[in-house]
């Protein structure tokens, strides 16, 4: 049965998360989000498991993706970043600080997903204007703040990044 795995078999996958390679054994149907959570990256949160809420957003080769919509085996060979990578020692990143300053979090469940979503934007489109930033921020859901404070935090973080890249 060339190429097909039984659902109960597991396969070895190397996931490069936050700069360090990790070998995991996963059944082929295990989502990337679940595999990351099982590997201890519990900042990857599951709010809907079908790609709408964005709480599980990570960076894959620098681009923001929903990790609930990928299989762990698809992560092989790619560079994965989660919110754990943002902090430099004790220092919050400019983006994290902007969330704090703008009251862009309450319960904190959606926060890592939003941070990675906007981190992706910061890196790929540092010159993004207001409309583009709003378009990107509206990809994810925040039930506590309504996400307008998240948009404000994103605006401030992108502006700060332009002033002091």
């Amino acid at each position: 049965m060339a190429g097909w795995l039984d659902p109960h078999d597991s396969v070895a996958v190397t996931l490069t998360v936050n700069g360090a390679p990790r070998k995991v054994r996963v059944p082929p149907r295990r989502t990337l989000a679940d595999a990351l959570r099982d590997a201890g990256f519990t900042s990857v949160r599951l709010g809907c498991e079908h790609g709408v809420c964005g709480s599980c957003t990570i960076l894959l080769d620098g681009a923001a993706v929903r990790s609930c919509l990928m299989l762990a085996v698809q992560g092989q060979g790619h560079t994965i970043e989660t919110v754990e990578s943002l902090t430099d020692g004790d220092e919050l990143s400019t983006l994290q600080q902007a969330f704090d300053d703008n009251d862009a979090l309450q319960c904190g469940f959606c926060t890592p997903g939003f941070l990675m979503l906007i981190e992706g934007l910061l890196r790929s489109e540092p010159e993004a204007g207001r409309d583009r930033i709003l378009e990107v921020v509206s990809s994810n859901l925040c039930r506590c703040t309504g996400a307008v404070p998240v948009f404000q935090a994103a605006l401030n973080a992108l502006a700060a990044n332009r002033d002091d890249p």
Binding site: R37, T42, S43, R45, Q96, F99, L105, G108, T111
Partner: peptide, 16 residues
Amino acid sequence: RKNRELLTGEGTYVAD
């Protein structure tokens, strides 16, 4: 309080 913990992804929710 707790913002720092939540911003760094350290908070433990029941699924964790």
